[in-house]
Design a protein around this nucleic acid. Structure first.
Lengths: 251, 251
DNA sequence: CAAGTTTTTGCAATATTTTGCAGGATTATG
DNA sequence: CATAATCCTGCAAAATATTGCAAAAACTTG
């Protein structure tokens, strides 16, 4: 049983507003099993705190000029939670992680359990910030920040990666095709992903089903080189991958 | 059966809160076979220790504090707009900027006018993200991310700075005293600021009046080395600086 | 062990908060 | 304009909090 009190309800409502959903008083009254007036008063309170804009029938999120950076930083918006959980199960004990940029990896890292003495190495400033927030030591790979993928690239970055040896590399995905392998949108990023793969004992990829079977511009790694793919695809979609050696975990 | 004393009960309750569950006074009274008042007092004690947030009907876990940096990221919240404007007037045309971390510099960079072909070099992932959003090219200096100030530090970072020559360095401030000069909280950050100063033709500092006259732990630069200080202090407060050569702009 | 002290507990009287409801006012819509 | 939905206001009932107090339990000390 849950506490059904103004405080708790308002917290839930505020969360939903943050996620961009609108509140419909009628529905909420049913859901929380209280009268319309109670929901109305909750919304009134949220409005007083500046967390909601009241409209007829409910409330809508405050129109906030969110910069895309903050948007992406707000942990794992739209990333399948099952993928996040499964990946964390694989990497939470790893003392040294090499992490690529991307929304999926960002969502994973920002939910990483706190662990003393973990080191996260990354070319992505977003990942660096998220990892630091989770209490990890962070080594940021310097270089020119690529506009497309948001990771640093360039010769200096590549040469610093070549001096590194880590347990696990967690790579992001632009495209993943059974024949074409892992692919990247950008030439410089392709080189980075390849270098990260070389630097690690094992390479893990977490990706949503929408990326499966697609090809991005630059071929990066053959499927056989990948150690583990974690995805929410349905079993049919991974059939083409089964003839390769890669291990696939469905969630 | 366990000892049913305040200490034991409170330990159990604290554990449950840590696991994220809510405490419902009614249920607990039944479970521990004590009166509601006793449970209430337990919760009162937990609240005093900062382990619970009391609500009507029981208690809920302490709302985990939003990471301070992320909070402050919300563009320039709390930074004097006049300082931002004045600093932008000085740096908006500069083709190559070396930018230190910190809330003030972050607020400045995130309001920088869009300009083709500007390059921002920075050891701060926050600055890097903000600068990229403003359309600048970004070079991120790699290194270990310092927990205190949020900039990369270490030998690799220092040596990459030494290979750089830029027009303007925009430094953050921990303390600024007429005698002691510019100071930093952290030893590694001190080295970084010094290196950034050396790499630049001119060094600009933007700071709020609260930092004036204060000393942080590590002396970093004498006041005379600074080219320009932009601040919202009142004229009295900058009197002690007038005997040095530094130019001060009041806003 | 016994007397004194402190802690813990339950209870009762009194606030305070929360809730649902009834009525009249306001707004959207055809 | 008519109708229906929603909103606002005041109010009373229910649930929960707070306070003060006294009995019981546990601890301390000689």
């Amino acid at each position: 049983m849950n506490l059904n009190i103004p405080d708790t309800r308002q917290q839930v409502l505020a969360l939903r507003l943050d996620q961009g959903s609108q509140l419909i008083a009628q529905e909420l009254a049913l859901e929380f099993d209280v009268s319309l007036d109670t929901i109305r008063r909750d919304i009134l309170a949220l409005e007083a705190e500046g967390k909601a804009r009241r409209v007829r029938g409910g409330a809508v999120p405050i129109a906030k000029p969110v910069s895309p950076m903050l948007e992406r930083l707000s942990s794992g918006h739209g990333v399948n939670q099952a993928i996040i959980d499964a990946t964390i199960a694989h990497v939470s004990d790893v003392p040294t992680l090499l992490v690529d940029g991307g929304t999926t990896t960002l969502a994973i890292i920002s939910q990483l359990p706190k662990l003393d003495q973990r080191l996260v190495i990354t070319p992505s400033p977003w990942i660096a910030i998220a990892a630091q927030e989770r209490g990890s030591d962070v080594h940021l790979l310097g270089g020119n920040l690529s506009t497309s993928g948001g990771i640093t690239t360039g010769n200096t970055t590549l040469s610093s990666i070549n001096d590194i040896a880590v347990d696990v590399a967690l790579l992001g995905v632009c495209g993943l095709d059974p024949e074409f392998g892992l692919s990247a949108d950008d030439h410089a990023e392709m080189h980075m992903k390849q270098a990260m793969h070389r630097a690690a004992n094992s390479t893990i990829i977490a990706t949503e089903q929408s990326k499966l079977g697609t090809k991005a511009r630059h071929r990066t790694l053959p499927v056989d080189e990948i150690d583990l793919i974690i995805t929410d695809a349905n079993p049919d979609m991974i059939k083409p991958f089964e003839q390769s050696l890669v291990k696939i975990e469905l969630v």
